[in-house]
Nucleic acid binder design. Structure first.
Lengths: 339, 339
DNA sequence: TTGTACGCGTTATCAT
DNA sequence: ATGATAACGCGTACAA
């Protein structure tokens, strides 16, 4: 086992001082060509690489960024991570991923763990528990220490930091508008509770489009599911009593699930009833019929978040100005609506 | 902005030495009760937390583990990460995720980046390019440096290290066996090239089950797709010429896609033709009909990998003994086959 | 041209 | 009971 070689090792072998080795490896002008060549050859031979930890300690920069998200088994977050990874790697940063699993406590613990020097900044999306609780002290502490934070998707106004969001209201709006233009008369929505900021915004967009139309808003047509868990009977009962001719679902799962239900009861998609979901994941693409969705552009979101964070990390000035980037959602048309 | 407080800061404020502070915070017997109380109160007040980087430098242990995988937008890998995360976090480790995106070069770069002190060990699954190339020098270098490595799923025999795999051959075997028991006569398989170790093993299991039966192996019934990309026409042509009554697909996508094709041509699933796929992801669950799959138990795999790695990291002895854990796949029965 | 000394934050050993 | 010192690996200002 050939253990990692250090500057000290090289210095000892070559009988020069550590700083000479250090300078030689950086091609410093101060060092003679002879010595440089000797040192560099030796370093290459033994595959010398500087120790990241030592450099981190010295520079007070780790070149790591912490990503804290509620759930990784969720296509949207997964694409965001990929975007972050790509961008961060290109700028020489590593990504430490921590999962809150929708738990406030885990979110706090993970952030504290990382905040003690392990990372130069955070990119995060709040757990649903945190959003329900409305307790953001862990975020406050981190920002007060001068650690940059970028919040994405599930954000809060209580914290001053950079933010990246999809215009979820617009997403709900354009989807509903699409239904209206196609002459649908009973447009329903299946969503979660208002505690999830995104669900709330999407529902508002839905309501806005309806109130601008001659159809008007009818609260009976909105089903608020108490949790992200599927509840077969609630949805079934809702669809059977309300008999909508179009349904906007706050996520893919609700949509695909609802489509199966109505298909079993003999309805034809998209003629008898049309569907639009949120999140352009595998499910939508391979559903039968394939699902029209409001695409969230997660990868783009990840890239933008990473860029904002790293720019802030590397900026000298202590600017206290924060911006919120709003990405526009787009409709990906598939078979679940008329063309 | 209240910047992080250090031992030195506390020592200065309380007019004691740094080492006294350090000991007091560890409740050392050497320190008087008075001093301890004073120091601990002060530390709590200013929310002192030791700097991870300094501790890493001192201990030569980072409490980070590096995970290098080909792709994160893939349900199986995602579940593995979750398993790793859960287990690693519980033992106080953080997870640094790097994506090779199926590229040999990226795999090498990422590993080198992490190997210079950022992590205590690797958990990884090889990129397809690496497996095709058969070049494992980057892994050799890392293991020779004494950094523990656990390979999972996409592994190689060229490297001596701990490994965790699903018994993919068994998976192919039990799925095919199931078809045979149900009286299927023309059992086809849609797979990728042999360069992916898992595909190869699954195909071998398929062949084994057939050769043990009266049906025998017929190479015309095996479609090897040149890449993971979907190629509509290849599959369509294959299904139309061979007209199988059962199809085993090496992944979810192939399966769901094939099901749509046969449904469009009027066949009934599962009576006219049955399907089994690999990987128990969202796609299978919500497909129409829902897809019977050979479940890979990714989360379990992640946990086992993390346990093996951390045990090795924390074991004193320099045991050169490596083990390969083989997890058993199970069949998750859904609507795409007869019950 | 080369080397010395110090600092990053912490801990462990040895002295007082 | 407390403190000084060295060490982890590196970089750099300063000295020789």
């Amino acid at each position: 086992m050939k253990t990692k070689i250090t500057l000290k090792d090289i210095a000892r072998e070559l009988e020069v001082s550590i700083s000479t080795v250090s300078k030689a490896l950086k091609n410093s002008e101060e060092i003679s060509r002879d010595t440089k060549e000797k040192v560099q050859a030796f370093a290459k031979l033994y595959n010398y690489k500087p120790n990241n930890i030592a450099i981190s300690l010295k520079n007070k920069r780790t070149k790591n960024i912490g990503v804290v998200i509620p759930d990784i088994v969720h296509h949207f977050f997964t694409t965001v991570i990929r975007g972050i990874e790509k961008y961060a790697n290109a700028r020489g940063y590593n990504v430490i991923v921590c999962l809150s699993e929708e738990s406030f406590d885990k979110e706090v613990i993970n952030m504290e763990m990382l905040a003690n020097g392990s990372i130069d900044g955070f990119i995060m999306s709040l757990s649903s528990e945190t959003q329900q609780k409305g307790d953001y002290n862990h975020l406050k502490e981190v920002t007060e220490q001068g650690i940059p934070v970028v919040l994405f998707d599930r954000i809060t106004n209580e914290i001053d930091c950079d933010k990246v969001v999809i215009d979820d209201e617009l997403g709900g709006y354009i989807a509903t508008k699409k239904f209206i233009e196609q002459g649908k008369r009973k447009i329903a929505m299946i969503t979660t509770g208002d505690y999830l900021s995104v669900s709330k915004a999407r529902t508002m967009g839905y309501q806005k489009a309806l109130s601008e139309s001659s159809l008007g808003v009818n609260d009976d047509l909105v089903l608020k599911m108490p949790s992200m868990e599927m509840d077969e009977n609630r949805i079934k009962e809702f669809l059977e009593t309300q008999k909508p001719d179009a349904v906007l679902c706050v996520n893919e799962i609700f949509a695909v699930y609802s489509m199966r239900l109505v298909q079993k009861s003999g309805l034809k998609i998209p003629d008898d009833i049309s569907f639009i979901g949120f999140t352009d994941g595998v499910l939508s693409k391979y559903a039968n019929p394939s699902l029209t969705v409001v695409a969230q552009h997660g990868e783009k979101m990840g890239e933008v978040s990473a860029k904002m964070l790293i720019d802030k990390i590397e900026s000298e000035e202590e600017e206290e100005t924060y911006q919120t980037k709003i990405l526009e959602p787009t409709l990906v048309i598939r078979e679940s609506i008329n063309q």
